[in-house]
Amino acid sequence: MSDYSPTILQGQQTNDDEILAKTPLDAKALGGDSSVVIMELLQRFKVRDVMKRQVLSIPRKATLREAQRILRENHISGLPVSEDGRLYGIISVNDIINGLDHGWMDDTVDMHMASSLVVLEAGMPISFALRYFNNYTYGRFPVLDSNRQLVGIISQRDVMRALLYELSVEIRKLERKTADKVAQPAPPSETHFFRREWAVVHNDLTGAGRAANEIKQLLREKKVDRSVARRIAVAAYELEINICIHSHGGVLVMVISDNAVTITAKDRGPGIPDIEWACRDGTSTANDWIRSLGFGAGMGLSNSKRVADFFEIESEVGKFTKVTCAFNLKKLEAPAGGTAS
């Protein structure tokens, strides 16, 4: 009658290592140091952090036909049967198919719903939910609070979305840490006395521009001529935005030497098939979302070229794009104490 097996949640939690070993994100995949972040996420996140809180439901005395309408109109395959927050069962598409087959469509849902349910509690860690998704074939589970009231519903998609988001946040933190490590000044040489590198993350338009702002502040501290500093910052900003919106991510590097400042933007692809076309004013592959943020008018490369004293672009489709802009310094006072900083 129902696709829900008569399993009742016992409530006890099992050993976490066992949970991880049986989930799709198995222990092997989580092995090594890199697993620490994921394991921490699986424990830190609770079901309540991920579940959908707006749950459609239907009362016990509604008919299968009404349930069918709600399922169809909302493109869902299962519907909790609840009253005043108390969960009585679940009516699924399979129950509706059986109802159509046997002529039960005018029966009330409590006659055909699954009433022995597998449920999750809102305070359980996500690792617990993953184990349930792995052990049962259901696509979603109702979520109850400590008073056994229905407070949400959780699907595999909800879990994956939340984990992917949190992982991207963690990866961004790691990238920034890496950038900070790389940002140590290069060994002093005859010409270089300052080098710094910033990681630029794909589609991070909240953070995009931060490197260019820092570059401008650094140039001010280094007493670089104001008009030159502005041109350098403009190129850095345009190139940073380009990496952010057009590439898979990359780095922005500034090198200050005795008589020039060089800004290099290098990304990890996808590369530019037609460089000449890409450098023309007004040509862009940007989408409406990017345009709504004030960019994407196809002026990034041409603006960078316009303000730079030297401009070079290299690209290999599927591999990388590297843009170099160099600026002659009218006046640059070396930091006190020598040529290294």
């Binding site: 338009l205 521009g209 931060r210 260019a212 104001r226 900003y237 004030g294």
Partner: peptide
């Protein structure tokens, strides 16, 4: 343009 980018751009051009 009520976004961070308006501020960042303003900073770049002083």
């Amino acid at each position: 343009l009520a976004s961070d980018q308006a501020i960042r751009t303003a900073h770049i051009v002083g």
